[in-house]
Computed example of a mutant assay.
Amino acid sequence: MLGVDDVAARLGSIGFRCRGCGACCRRVAEDSNLVLVSPAEVRAIMAATGMAWDKVAEPYPDFIDTGNGGKYTLAWCLRRTADACIFLRDGRCSIYAHRPWICRTYPFMLVDDDLGVSECPGLGAPLSPCDARDAAADLCRRQAAEAVEESGIRAVFHEASVPPGKRAVIDSEGVKVLDG
């Protein structure tokens, strides 16, 4: 696993400054703005907005057949309209202070010992050592949070049962059977 100093050095060499364009929040290709969220992130957004779970999050769109007519997926995503995240309003994030890890750290992500970089117009802009370190710390915290969520999903999955003919999301909190 990469340390904060290693990640900060890489971020500094790439450079980044958010332009506030909102392109990352808009759908430019199928599932281009798919934002995975953990149950804890959904609950934080619910607390901040007063919205219900099903108004904040939708199941990850790829379902796996159980063989008994049931289907499951292993993740939640922020809800979207036909062209953008539901929280993009007037070109700005309406839940900015409560935005999920994926949004906080975009366009970067840590995958094992590698730094992934998504396409973004803000890449290449000068990044101060202090800002690089802050961003690196966020990336490391995100990676740790994702590892905890994945471990939780694995633990639940081994005991999970999806009712015949139903669709469900299996997350770190359990099996959530979907309506309809």
Score class of each variant (00 low, 15 high):
Ser13Asp: 15
Arg142Trp: 14
Val156Glu: 06
Glu41Ala: 01
Val117Tyr: 04
Arg26Trp: 10
Arg17Ser: 15
Asp31Cys: 05
Ile170His: 00
Leu74Phe: 13
His98Ala: 14
Ile95Tyr: 08
Gly69Arg: 02
Ala125Cys: 06
Val111Leu: 09
Pro164Phe: 00
Lys166Ser: 15
Val117Trp: 01
Thr73Ala: 01
Val177Gln: 12
Thr81Arg: 08
Ile153Gln: 00
Leu36Glu: 05
Val169Trp: 00
Glu58Met: 08
Gly12Asp: 10
Asp5Met: 13
Ala52Ile: 08
Ile102Gln: 12
Val156Asp: 05
Ala40His: 12
Val42Ile: 14
Gly165Ala: 13
Ile14Asp: 07
Cys25Tyr: 06
Asp179Gly: 05
Arg99Thr: 05
Ser94Val: 03
Arg10Glu: 15
Gly122Ser: 07
Gly12Ala: 12
Lys71Arg: 15
Phe87Val: 04
Met51Glu: 10
Glu173Tyr: 09
Thr73Trp: 01
Ile64Met: 14
Ser128Phe: 07
Gly70Cys: 03
Leu74His: 03
Pro121Thr: 11
Lys166Glu: 13
Asp114Lys: 09
Asp112Arg: 14
Met109Ala: 14
Val175Phe: 14
Lys55Gln: 15
Ser118Ile: 05
Asp83Glu: 14
Asp90Glu: 15
Asp171Pro: 02
Leu34Met: 07
Asn68Val: 10
Ala155Met: 11
Cys85Trp: 00
Ala75Ser: 12
Glu173His: 14
Leu11Pro: 01
Thr66Pro: 00
Gly70Arg: 00
Ser128Gln: 06
Val162Ile: 14
Asp138Ser: 11
Cys140Phe: 09
Ala168Pro: 01
Cys130Tyr: 10
Arg17Asn: 10
Gly67Ala: 02
Trp101His: 02
Ala47Met: 13
Ala40Thr: 06
Cys103Val: 12
Asp113Cys: 03
Asp5Lys: 09
Val111Ala: 07
Arg141Ser: 06
Ile86Ala: 02
Arg19Ile: 15
Ile170Trp: 01
Asp83Pro: 05
Cys24Asp: 04
Ser118Cys: 07
Arg26Asn: 04
Ala29Gln: 04
Leu36Lys: 03
Asn33Trp: 11
Ala57Trp: 04
Leu34Phe: 06
Leu11Ser: 13
Lys55Pro: 04
Arg80Met: 13
Gly124Leu: 08
Cys130Met: 11
Phe157Asn: 04
Asp131Cys: 08
Ala155Cys: 10
Met1Phe: 11
Val56Asp: 07
Leu88Glu: 02
Pro164Thr: 05
Val4Ile: 15
Cys85Asn: 00
Ile86Leu: 11
Val175Gly: 04
Arg104Gln: 11
Arg19Cys: 08
